[in-house]
Structure formats: structure tokens, C-alpha cells
Design a binder for these strands. Sequence first.
DNA 1: ATCCCGAGGG
DNA 2: CCCTCTGGAT
Length: 218
Amino acid sequence: MQLIIQSKALADAILAVLLTQWPGVGTDLQYKNCFELIIAVILSAQCTDEQVNKVTPALFANWPDPASLATAPLEALEKAVYSTGFYKHKAQHIKETARIIAETYSGRVPETFEALLELPGVGRKTAHLVQSLCHNKPGLIIDTHVLRITQRTGLALSSNPYKTEKILASIITEELHARASFALNRQAKHICTARKPQCEICSINALCRTYSPGNFSQ
DNA sequence: ATCCCGAGGG
DNA sequence: CCCTCTGGAT
């Protein structure tokens, strides 16, 4: 109980800073609609957004909607998404996801979390991201950046994304799920980086359990 | 050598 | 819990 209270206070303090610093809710992925977003997010697994943005313009020019993407030759898709890595899985996933969206959901990206999770290539992170940006629904988006910064700061001491999601859900109100996710993502991506974190200029270093002045290693 | 807005399977 | 899938950037 005491732990939860302390965690909530820490979350409140960290979010007070980060929500002001990163007021926007968004992604660096380029997309024109829900369908393009969910495909782009599937492609973003273990890959930078910039790399995804290099392949999606041609991908959506050739196959602009779920029905057409569902009919795309697998080999052509593998070539189209090759540079994003995991290309065999990703090609199959986006083709099959497009087919299900076209056939089962009349070409519209489903709104419920359960329906999204059933799409191949869509896990909790992707489902929550789509719900946040497309359907304006709450959802904590635990990507590699959020996982790293929550571990380092002590906001959630877990290396398991699902556990971290549950911990954060217990200390962050639903209304803030999307904004908190993007603010944490931004801070981690630009300041609390994996390799050389910029602790000295980090706006929440006073709240971070890992930080001590002069310590650049973590 | 390590990491990138993961997911699926054992 | 673990492992595998994968190219590109640093």
C-alpha cells in the first residue's frame, strides 16, 4: 500500500514535468488514415519510424486499401517491406490483417481492444496505439522507449512490458494514458536514450533513481 | 556489438 | 519464462 502511494506520487511528479514538456500526442510514423496507421505500426516492430516511413509511401501507392493489400502477392510485399526487418513475418501479417479488415470489418479498422489483438502482427502495444490515435480510447503504449525510461526512473521496476503496463495502469488515470505514453516515449527517445542518455540535461533527473551527478553511464 | 515505438510460439 | 525472426543505423 505504501509502495503504491509512493509510486503514484512519483508518477504525478514525473508526469507534471513531462506532460508540459511534451504536450502533443502523436507518432513520427506517417499515415493518412487508420488503415495506414495500423499497417505502419505493424511494420515498426524493432525498427525505427524513419525506416518505416521510407517504405510506406510506395506500399500504400501500390495497395491503398485493405481489399487491395489483401490481394498483393506475398513476394512483392516481402520486397516492399524488406528494409524494415522481420520482412517475412511482416509481409504475411500485413496481408492477413488487411484481409481480415476487408472481409470481417467492411474495410474499417476494428475499435475494440480484443478485435485488434486478434489481427496477426498486432499485440498490446500496437492495439493501444491504434485505439489512442484512431479511436480516442485510453491505452498505455508500452514500447521499448517507455519500458526503458520507466525502469530507469523507477516508475515501474519491470523488464516485462505487460507487467509495466499493469503497474502504470494502477498509478496513472485513464484520461492520461495516451498523453503519458507519448510524453514518456518522447523523453526516452530524445533524452533517456538507450546508449548515451543525456542525464545532465534531463528535466526529471531529480526524480530518477538511476541518476547521480556526473554519472553518464546510465 | 547493440539497439530500433514487437509479436508469436514453445 | 525463454527463444526466434531481420535489416539498418550507430
